[in-house]
Design a protein around this nucleic acid. Structure first.
Length: 304
RNA sequence: GGUACCAUAGCUCAGUAGGUAGAGCAAUGGACUGAAAAUCCAUGUGUCCCUGGUUCGAUCCCAGGUGGUACCA
């Protein structure tokens, strides 16, 4: 009997939680979340973390397991998720992986290259340089340290340029030499299920969900973390707009409008990313039966 | 019922001394290998309300309609 990782992807707000619970219940298994913000225990309302009831229905992993003050990235996620899946596959043939964090999904399905974690001081220094002198000085460094990558990177994107430079400085090697461009072998099969709806429907759901978050106390939740607003973990839709509102940049209605807009844009980016994968089979979130039979037929094919 | 004003992009509006049009917001397409709910790039989508008239040519001028708003009855 083979092992299967059932990966459920789709834009934010489309109903991944519900569908993945149904799938997990059907196969009597557990869920690994691939969500870069639900992983923080402090963030509940603004990240639409599954409710206590939902968490009781099916065991979820990688939800509320770190603090917003911890350093966490897709590398840590790859490690965590692989270890977890190995553990779960001892007693299950299927595991459900669900989440909207595109790079986290890739980290477990394809793997990411081994690169050392960047010394925070080094990153701060480069960031300072960027803020003081602009992107040009960072670009110059990259051109010298890794001319190959300089040619392919988006030179307007300071995060990419800075990251390449910090990797070069950290390892003493060109960043491009560490990029293997390979997909890592995994000890399990991957079945990809995508959830989709008409754009209008997704956007309506998002707008509605934001209003519900506000009713549930999103503003109070954000207020609580205002002192830590510069943390990367809080550079998050739903919080950053409220922080700006607390700073007096605009009124509350405007903040809520921006949360809706930025969530919509996030959903669009997710769709662009997920649509690229040609192996994903797409369903409406209410087609549970079809989804299960699709998974069953893929497994049957593989096992025979 | 009368008078006035308005009707242009999804929304709010600008504009054309007559040569089929442009801002803001919203939106759309895309990139993505350790910050990824992050970060970055590109893009104007239009029966200029309808029907006639004048004109080489009308979104613009004229007439009539339709819809809206305000005021007067």
């Amino acid at each position: 009997m083979h092992k299967y990782l059932i990966v459920v992807v789709g834009p934010t707000g489309i109903g991944k939680t519900k569908v993945s619970i149904e799938i997990a219940k059907h196969y009597k298994t557990e869920i690994i979340s691939a969500d870069s913000r639900q992983i923080f225990k402090e963030l509940k309302i603004g990240t639409a973390t599954p409710s206590d009831e939902e968490l009781r229905e099916v065991k979820h992993h990688n939800i509320a397991s770190y603090s917003i003050h911890d350093y966490y990235s897709s590398w840590e996620f790859e490690q965590d998720a692989l270890q977890l899946s190995a553990e779960l596959f001892k007693t299950h043939n299927q595991i459900v992986l669900t989440g909207g964090s595109m790079m986290y999904i890739d980290a477990i399905c394809k793997g990411i290259d081994e690169i050392p974690t960047i010394d925070p001081e080094l990153r701060d220094n480069l960031m300072k340089l960027y803020n003081e002198e602009g992107i040009e000085s960072i670009r110059r460094q990259l051109k010298q340290l890794d001319p190959d990558f300089y040619m392919q990177v988006d030179l307007q994107n300071h995060k990419r340029v800075i990251h390449a430079v910090e990797v070069c400085l950290m390892t003493g090697k060109p960043y491009s030499s560490l990029r293997t461009n390979t997909v890592k072998k995994r000890p399990f099969n991957i079945i990809r299920v995508g959830l989709e709806l008409d754009r209008d429907e997704i956007y309506n759901r998002i707008n509605l969900r934001v209003d519900q978050m506000v009713e549930m106390g999103l503003i109070e939740e954000a207020k609580q973390f205002y002192p830590s607003k510069d943390l990367n973990s809080l550079n998050t839709v739903g919080y950053k707009e409220l922080f700006a509102h607390f700073d007096g940049e605009y009124d509350l209605d405007k903040a809520i409008e921006l949360i809706k807009r930025n969530t919509r844009r996030y959903a669009k980016r997710q769709m662009t990313w997920f649509k690229k994968d040609t192996e994903t089979q797409w369903f409406r979130p209410d087609e549970i039966t079809n989804i299960i039979s699709h998974i069953d037929s893929l497994m049957l094919n593989c096992d025979s």
